[in-house]
Nucleic acid binder design. Structure first.
Ligand code: FES
Ligand code: FES
Lengths: 159, 159
DNA sequence: AACAATCTTGACGAAAAAATAATGATTTGC
DNA sequence: GCAAATCATTATTTTTTCGTCAAGATTGTT
């Protein structure tokens, strides 16, 4: 289970914008430099994020990208959903082996686990806003542990 | 965030073995047919699972694969860890853009989120055994919801 | 109007992942 | 001992994902 390059870099670009003072903006070359990626790559990522409505772009001299909404209002779950291209609903169609469709269609024990995991992850991410990622690693870590503690509350008996 | 083909098919092959009557075994062609994948592919997956100690293989006529340990003792977290090839520890080395290492080394707000998500997922998967995946979709779904309920118990205030 | 800075967008090439193929090794049954 | 059945291992090909390029469109400046 891993995060894709699009998710990772897209999220990072948004964090750069969120770290700016109120109303600030960055051009593609600036974003690319700050994230250590190519300008072309940053361009594609920002194009996606623009289409999805997270950022606002201005062309021409003095142009650039800025957040469309306050960073405090943007939840990570929304961002990942966009950068992830609906991987969940395509799950059964992706792993069909040499056949045309999942051999387990109709009665599959794995599907509920996949769906459950996605809900779990989405729920955790929905509790974190873009603004919260701007701080230093230490503070983000402490913040996540508050979310993380939710799984300590489960009774230890096997399910 | 998605599951890889290796994780998906590897897990499915193990479920097939777990569904067998006590002590039963399956040959590669049988596994391949039941999962709708090629024999070559099944062979590679079972080789991995054998190296990791989940299954026991017997060569020659009347050979095949069987579970090395009871399905009730094998937790999904163990399986995924093997099929996932330690994606977590390689995270920072994977997304380096055009540079040699993560631009955020030393103070990164995303890393704790990635690590936290992994812990969350691993914790959920550690509460599910292979044996529990054998039943019908409905029963597995109900079972997962008992695990899943852990995230409903979190206080809804923002973190 | 001409020019420079900037974003837009589809096509293309490179890299990584997945699947397949090929060859070898072990066991069983005769 | 030999042949058939089976797993083991590495190499090759195919597919998918990722990154780059190039031509275009828009805006601001002089
Ligand atoms: S994951 Fe699609 S039917 Fe099992
Ligand atoms: S993910 Fe590696 S430093 Fe941020």
């Amino acid at each position: 289970m891993k995060i894709s390059a699009q998710e990772e870099y897209g999220l990072r670009c948004l964090v750069q914008l969120a770290a700016l003072p109120e109303g600030g903006s960055l051009t593609l070359p600036q974003i690319a430099e700050r994230e250590g990626i190519s300008i072309a790559n940053a361009g594609k990522l920002m194009w996606l994020l623009n289409k999805a409505g997270f950022v606002h772009s201005t062309r021409g001299t003095k142009g650039g990208y800025s957040l469309e909404r306050p960073a405090e209002d943007i939840r990570l779950s929304e961002i990942i959903k966009v950068l992830d291209e609906d991987v969940l609903s395509k799950h059964c169609g992706s792993y069909t082996g040499v056949l045309d469709s999942c051999v387990h269609n109709g009665d599959c024990g794995i599907r509920p686990v996949i769906i459950g995991l996605h809900m779990l992850v989405e729920n955790a991410l929905s509790q974190i806003t873009l603004a919260q990622l701007v701080g230093s690693e230490r503070s983000v870590d402490a913040m996540f542990h508050r979310v993380h503690s939710i799984h300590r509350t489960v009774e230890p008996h096997g399910v």
